[in-house]
């Protein structure tokens, strides 16, 4: 097991939803082709996209005089279509397990079983303490070192069931 890469994460900085939404809109601009980047940004900084965020974003993005017409339904449509955008509240840490075939045939099957046992969660569930949410993702493109798992933005490769307790222990 080793950590493959660290990606700068904004998580844990500010959790002020209004500020997060405003910053995202400001960064990407209020036009149609920025909707997905904006939602991604909110999702990353807030952990998920609550209804309130959609409302706020719509207000900022809807500019009839600029011919940018936006409805909440349209933004919901995007949030529900793309797997990386979540509309449900998640735990403090999100565990994402790669469920694609190359990882599956390299020990992923056993690992998946072990992850569910260790966390006592099924895919899509969050524990009562709000610590972990368990999800599956499809191939993360690092199959050469599978099976792999993401905890927040930390990628773990060549993971074996025995290492799980230690890995999860790092996340409070």
């Amino acid at each position: 097991m080793f950590k493959v890469a660290e990606v700068p994460s904004q998580a844990g900085q500010t959790k002020d939803l209004t500020r997060i939404v405003e910053a995202a809109v400001e960064k990407h601009g209020a036009h149609a082709d920025a909707f997905i980047p904006i939602l991604l940004e909110i999702n990353r900084d807030y952990g998920y996209i609550p209804a309130e965020a959609i409302r706020l974003a719509r207000k900022l993005l809807h500019q009839p005089e600029e011919h940018v017409l936006v409805s909440e339904g349209q933004l919901y449509g995007l949030a529900s279509f793309y797997h990386m955008l979540h509309t449900e509240k998640t735990g403090r840490h999100v565990v994402q397990f790669c469920e694609s075939a190359p990882c599956h045939v390299q020990g992923g099957r056993e690992l998946w079983k072990a992850i569910r046992q260790t966390l006592r969660l099924e895919a899509g569930e969050t524990d009562p303490e709000g610590r972990f949410t368990l999800k599956t993702v499809s191939c993360l493109g690092v199959c050469g070192v599978g099976p792999v798992m993401l905890v927040d933005d930390d990628l773990y490769a060549n993971v074996t069931p025995e290492q799980l307790t230690e890995i999860f222990g790092k996340y409070e």
């Binding site: 036009h31 149609a32 082709d33 920025a34 997905i36 980047p37 279509f81 797997h83 993702v137 499809s138």
Partner: peptide, 26 residues
């Protein structure tokens, strides 16, 4: 650079174009 948001079908070129325009990638 435009980022996808996790939808395999967006690799299909017409879906990709829809996604670049900020729509659902259908």
């Amino acid at each position: 650079v435009r980022m996808g948001a996790g939808a395999f079908v967006c690799g299909e070129e017409t879906a990709l174009i829809a996604s670049i325009e900020g729509k659902r990638g259908e």
